[in-house]
Design a protein around this nucleic acid. Sequence first.
DNA 1: GATGAAACACCCAGGAG
DNA 2: CTCCTGGGTGTTTCATC
Lengths: 160, 160
Amino acid sequence: MSTVSASGSGPQSSLEPLDTAIVRELAKDGRCSFTDLAERVGLSVSAVHQRVRRLEQRGVITRYSAHLDAESVGLPLTAFISLTPIDPAAPDDYPQRLKGIHEIESCYSVAGEESYILLVRVASPAALEDLLRRIREAAKVSTRTTVVLSTPYEGRAPAL
Amino acid sequence: MSTVSASGSGPQSSLEPLDTAIVRELAKDGRCSFTDLAERVGLSVSAVHQRVRRLEQRGVITRYSAHLDAESVGLPLTAFISLTPIDPAAPDDYPQRLKGIHEIESCYSVAGEESYILLVRVASPAALEDLLRRIREAAKVSTRTTVVLSTPYEGRAPAL
DNA sequence: GATGAAACACCCAGGAG
DNA sequence: CTCCTGGGTGTTTCATC
């Protein structure tokens, strides 16, 4: 069966069913033990362990993290900031220029009127104002800010 | 000093320095052992263990997850979908109506022209088309879609 | 918050299908 | 090549101080 696949060249768009199951469980519960994981996917502990390490090495699993309640950690204000370059001839190294600004949680290059969308978290409106100033200064962009009023859900695990 | 705080009523906006350190480490490495964690924050293993459990119970840590490479798991197309209600008199239960659509990773209620911003992941343009149809049908909204071309970074840990 | 001890999980071998 | 078996090592978790 299946002499195909498994030659490690380039990102394949599909995963083995067993790997899919593993990845789905770890996306839902990133801290579950290998013992639990083995039971859930119906494999031995070491087989699961082996597969998880392979998934990490292949870059399928990029990292693990705790999800924090933004309010509890003192960052109650979330916003999307859309970026439009001021000088259209400038080199497109905005992510690099903004990388050091730690309030930026995510940076997406997008198709549309604007070039980038940033997801940011700050402590207060004043902190947002200061952040916008630093972003404009660092990247020479104009910004459009959309304040998040509430977050019904966020970072849900994909279906797979 | 600080005889303040610690009475468990409502979300306090600030955390003890030790809890902040714990939470910062777990945000960066959600799967690190309690032993490692204890060393990094300069506490005994059981003290750390106790604090982590408290942080989980208080809802400061909401969950743990593995971050997946979207392409590797067969969801190479990411997009933002902005929602505008068609009937302004309809009850605002959009998150509820959309909750069952698993392609929606995050749902934000926002201030601005549109009411909600969704972050979605799908396998293909055809899947996106189908998803948009299902969103419009389920929530009675008009949609505006911004396709993500690339993701320089995503889900970075906050500075704290 | 620290210590110590028992239960448990991890993870390296090596071997079987 | 992938999966399972074993066992030493390290981790979790609970009682106690």
